[in-house]
Simulated scan of single mutants.
Amino acid sequence: MALNDFISVFFPYCVEKQPDGRYVVLNREYKPVGFKTTEHIEYEKYPICVEFKGLGSATAGKLSWNGDSSTDKIYLYNDGCVPTKSPEHMKNYLKRLEIFAKLKVVH
């Protein structure tokens, strides 16, 4: 379980597209950011699914730790580049978060 540090609970690990086309932002345990649990979560039961304006393949490639342009599941880091493991990993992660933070949420 990776829920023993701040980044694993409160920072985005991945962004996963849902069947309706909206996204949920997940922590290291594939729970919505801020959820500190290992219990199964049904995303549709919570107001956490959103549509991001401008989240196409080009932006997905910039958000992905390895440049993957798939918009189905976008990983901001992986076990080989955990942001807290080195200043360089953190710098790269924060660059991706800067891009992510500029996206608008569609209402």
Score class of each variant (00 low, 15 high):
residue 100 F to P: 05
residue 90 M to G: 03
residue 93 Y to Q: 01
residue 38 T to K: 12
residue 16 E to I: 12
residue 1 M to E: 11
residue 102 K to H: 09
residue 88 E to W: 00
residue 69 S to R: 14
residue 40 H to K: 08
residue 46 Y to A: 02
residue 25 V to A: 07
residue 68 D to C: 13
residue 53 K to N: 12
residue 61 G to R: 06
residue 64 S to K: 01
residue 16 E to C: 07
residue 32 P to M: 10
residue 24 V to R: 12
residue 87 P to V: 00
residue 51 E to T: 14
residue 27 N to C: 02
residue 101 A to S: 09
residue 53 K to P: 07
residue 89 H to L: 00
residue 49 C to S: 15
residue 74 I to Y: 02
residue 81 C to D: 10
residue 87 P to D: 00
residue 51 E to F: 13
residue 85 K to T: 10
residue 59 T to K: 15
residue 38 T to S: 11
residue 61 G to F: 02
residue 13 Y to P: 01
residue 3 L to G: 13
residue 83 P to A: 00
residue 5 D to T: 04
residue 50 V to K: 15
residue 50 V to W: 13
residue 28 R to S: 12
residue 7 I to V: 07
residue 50 V to E: 10
residue 52 F to W: 12
residue 28 R to A: 11
residue 56 G to Q: 07
residue 67 G to V: 02
residue 39 E to H: 05
residue 102 K to A: 08
residue 18 Q to Y: 04
residue 17 K to R: 15
residue 85 K to R: 11
residue 18 Q to P: 06
residue 74 I to R: 02
residue 66 N to Y: 04
residue 23 Y to R: 03
residue 23 Y to M: 02
residue 69 S to F: 12
residue 26 L to R: 12
residue 38 T to E: 11
residue 88 E to D: 01
residue 58 A to T: 14
residue 106 V to L: 14
residue 96 R to T: 04
residue 27 N to L: 05
residue 17 K to L: 07
residue 92 N to Q: 07
residue 46 Y to M: 05
residue 3 L to F: 00
residue 100 F to E: 12
residue 93 Y to K: 01
residue 47 P to D: 13
residue 56 G to C: 02
residue 56 G to P: 03
residue 64 S to Q: 01
residue 94 L to S: 04
residue 72 D to E: 14
residue 92 N to C: 10
residue 57 S to R: 13
residue 79 D to V: 08
residue 38 T to P: 06
residue 28 R to N: 09
residue 18 Q to W: 05
residue 72 D to I: 06
residue 61 G to N: 05
residue 2 A to E: 03
residue 12 P to K: 11
residue 98 E to T: 11
residue 53 K to Q: 08
residue 62 K to S: 11
residue 51 E to Q: 15
residue 2 A to N: 08
residue 16 E to G: 03
residue 101 A to Y: 10
residue 59 T to Q: 12
residue 3 L to A: 12
residue 107 H to R: 14
residue 39 E to D: 13
residue 71 T to A: 10
residue 77 Y to F: 13
residue 87 P to L: 00
residue 59 T to A: 06
residue 93 Y to R: 00
residue 24 V to H: 08
residue 41 I to F: 14
residue 65 W to C: 06
residue 62 K to M: 15
residue 35 F to D: 12
residue 10 F to W: 14
residue 27 N to F: 01
residue 64 S to M: 02
residue 59 T to H: 07
residue 17 K to S: 09
residue 13 Y to T: 02
residue 91 K to F: 13
residue 96 R to P: 05
residue 41 I to T: 11
residue 7 I to F: 10
residue 47 P to T: 03
residue 61 G to K: 05
residue 9 V to Y: 02
residue 73 K to Y: 04
residue 74 I to P: 01
residue 80 G to V: 04
residue 96 R to V: 07
residue 27 N to E: 02
residue 91 K to Y: 12
residue 96 R to M: 07
residue 7 I to L: 11
residue 85 K to G: 14
residue 15 V to H: 08
residue 101 A to N: 15
residue 74 I to V: 03
residue 93 Y to M: 01
residue 83 P to S: 00
